[in-house]
Simulated assay, not measured.
Amino acid sequence: MEAGSSIKNRTSSIALEIAGFVKFTFIGYFTIGLSLGVLPVFIHNQFGYNAMMAGVVISLQYLSTFLFRGYAGNIIDKKGPKTAVLSGTAGFAISGLFLFVAFLFKDHRELCLGLIALTRLVTGFAEGLIGSSPINWSINTVGEQNTAKAISYNGIASYGGLAIGAPVGILLDNNYGIAGISIVVFILGIGGYLLAKRKADALIKSSEQRKSFVSVLKTVAPYGICLTLAALGFGTISTFITLYYAYLNWTNAVLCLSVFSVFFILGRLIFAGAIDNYGGLKTSVACIALESVGLMVLWLANMPEVALIGAGITGLGFSLVFPALGVEAVKLVPGSNKGAALGAYGLFLDISLGLTGPLVGGVASHFGMLYIFPFSMGMVLLGLLLCLVIGWKLKSFRA
């Protein structure tokens, strides 16, 4: 009885320790969520640019994140995750300043759009630095045996931040405009920086020889490509759901993103042990299949209530894809490259979200807004097929 109580207390202690690090992820993604439901509509309605242009500007963030993932991984492995988190939170504060300047020039169409684009690039830098840093900070503190838990909790923090940040951003925009959002972003960035400054770093020195980032990238690439394809569903919802609802004359588009995020979080909480019990690849296959069902429901939805059901199924399906594939990918590299491995693996999520804007925006512009969800569903199904091929080659699905 006492042994069981001790294990339970230790588990709770580990969960609290991890939460103490992934709160920085929550701050970062709450910041990102503030403008996610506002800027696409602002660019489209205020300036008259089409859906593809709105998508390209929004996707600049993911391009920037992509470019700085490798840099972040090297900082984590050489200087420790705290340095990366400090840089990321400072970046969010600076992005708030740029967004405020953009607001001041809102009557100058091209200049304001350029400043918004610059804001997205700085936000992407901040996301790149803070994206996997709390995970590494957690793992270095609580041990590699808790890798799946650290990745899962980090995902809860990120999508929880988006789920809460998006409606708060709409509320701020309705009452104070983009200026209100920019001020909150700046305050959050400074607050996150001060909190991170107070925590002790956790840099683990490994005797194993470090591989180059390119070598690590090649190692994790098969799992990363699966993630890229699977994440197109989330990217389509996060980038285009406001425009999709507007096209259909539906209201409360931000609720769709929130429902996605809520079910995403529930999936990670309820099925947290699936990766340890069934393995990363089997879990990924089940989740990606469910995600494709959710996208099909969104595609066929003829009323916003049905669309919410589709968003919930999609969120539930996508919930464990990142940690499930990530656990398998990180196993393949030495301890001296764990930070680089998570950074390299995270690159593929950035690629997906970066491609979503121009790719799905192009589908919307050339074929119509109604085609965005069948297209993204097709991409997710390709990811499912690739995941099955990898699992079959590794004999993961054989008795």
Rank of each mutant, 00 (worst) to 15 (best):
residue 332 L to G: 04
residue 334 P to A: 00
residue 334 P to D: 14
residue 334 P to E: 14
residue 335 G to Q: 15
residue 336 S to A: 10
residue 336 S to G: 11
residue 337 N to I: 00
residue 337 N to S: 01
residue 339 G to Q: 12
residue 339 G to R: 11
residue 339 G to Y: 09
residue 341 A to N: 06
residue 343 G to H: 00
residue 343 G to S: 07
residue 344 A to F: 01
residue 345 Y to T: 05
residue 346 G to C: 00
residue 349 L to T: 08
residue 350 D to C: 06
residue 350 D to M: 06
residue 350 D to L: 06
residue 350 D to R: 09
residue 350 D to W: 07
residue 351 I to G: 05
residue 352 S to I: 01
residue 353 L to E: 14
residue 353 L to F: 06
residue 355 L to K: 07
residue 355 L to T: 07
residue 356 T to S: 14
residue 357 G to H: 09
residue 357 G to R: 03
residue 358 P to K: 10
residue 358 P to M: 04
residue 360 V to E: 11
residue 361 G to N: 11
residue 362 G to R: 12
residue 363 V to Y: 07
residue 364 A to Y: 10
residue 364 A to C: 11
residue 365 S to G: 13
residue 367 F to A: 12
residue 367 F to I: 08
residue 368 G to V: 12
residue 369 M to I: 15
residue 370 L to S: 13
residue 370 L to T: 13
residue 371 Y to S: 04
residue 372 I to L: 13
residue 373 F to A: 07
residue 375 F to Q: 09
residue 375 F to R: 01
residue 375 F to Y: 10
residue 375 F to K: 04
residue 376 S to G: 10
residue 378 G to Q: 15
residue 379 M to A: 09
residue 379 M to L: 10
residue 379 M to G: 09
residue 380 V to I: 08
residue 380 V to W: 05
residue 381 L to E: 15
residue 381 L to Y: 15
residue 381 L to F: 13
residue 381 L to H: 15
residue 382 L to G: 07
residue 382 L to I: 10
residue 383 G to M: 04
residue 384 L to R: 14
residue 385 L to D: 03
residue 385 L to H: 04
residue 386 L to H: 11
residue 386 L to N: 01
residue 386 L to G: 07
residue 387 C to T: 13
residue 387 C to K: 08
residue 388 L to F: 07
residue 388 L to I: 14
residue 389 V to I: 02
residue 390 I to D: 01
residue 391 G to N: 05
residue 391 G to R: 10
residue 391 G to W: 03
residue 391 G to L: 02
residue 392 W to H: 14
residue 393 K to F: 02
residue 394 L to R: 15
residue 394 L to E: 13
residue 395 K to G: 06
residue 396 S to G: 02
residue 397 F to H: 12
residue 397 F to S: 10
